[in-house]
């Protein structure tokens, strides 16, 4: 049972997530009261309740889907890439038969926003354009100089790390840092780029 619990399925309602008129169950019987994305599930106009179909119930309920990056192919294969693999994957155009989910906070259900050829994050589905790929390349280059995920949001390269970088590379670091300036206020793309800078635990 994909939900890991028994719920009562009924006909005659529409899924509040995907809009399919299929067998559904009350969303509150599938999801916990502490669930953080209720606003994404539409309320049934007639009964004033939220209903979910089985696939949507699974994507919204499964905690692993909210915590780890996942890639999905059209044939239904799910895989869990490392951050290094994800950086490599996202350095190029995402194939049209592949969807990527990248939860940021671990509270939002992002799988429901997954789209082919895009990255789903806490802020919804993000089309992965050439500009995003260039920004990711800058992020990756900055991490190679020792700037970690937590430091990238600073207005300027923190001196503690900068002073350890070879002086001949300082101009390059500043250039990269400034090139990311326009991304920092972007509430959808910037947390995604920063999260992609994360080092995999086994590489530390």
């Amino acid at each position: 049972m994909p939900l890991g619990k028994t719920v009562a399925w009924e006909d005659g309602h529409t899924c509040g997530n995907c809009g399919e008129a299929t067998e559904t169950a009350l969303a509150r019987t599938i999801l916990s009261a502490y669930y953080g994305s209720w606003e994404a599930i539409a309320v049934d106009a007639e009964g004033g309740k939220r209903w979910l179909c089985l696939p949507c119930g699974w994507t919204l309920r499964d905690k692993d889907l909210r915590r780890m990056p996942i890639t999905i192919t059209r044939d239904g294969t799910l895989s869990r890439p490392s951050f290094a693999e994800l950086r490599t994957l996202l350095s190029e155009r995402i194939p049209a038969d592949l969807a990527v989910t990248l939860p940021i906070e671990g509270r939002k259900a992002v799988m429901a926003d997954a789209r082919w050829g895009a990255v789903a994050t806490d802020s919804g589905s993000l089309p992965w354009t050439a500009a995003h790929r260039r920004a990711l390349a800058s992020v990756v280059e900055l991490t190679s100089y020792g700037f970690t995920e937590g430091l990238l949001s600073y207005d300027a390269p923190p001196f503690g790390v900068l002073s350890k970088v070879s002086v001949r590379d300082h101009a390059r670091v500043r250039e990269l840092w400034n090139s990311l300036g326009r991304w920092r206020p972007d509430v959808a793309a910037w947390p995604t780029l920063v999260r992609l800078a994360r080092r995999d635990k086994d590489s530390e």
Binding site: A156, F159, L162, S163, H170
Partner: peptide, 12 residues
């Protein structure tokens, strides 16, 4: 425009 860059240069 970029006081921090100038201060960082001074700091170095």
């Amino acid at each position: 425009s970029y006081p921090r860059d100038i201060v960082d240069r001074t700091r170095m």
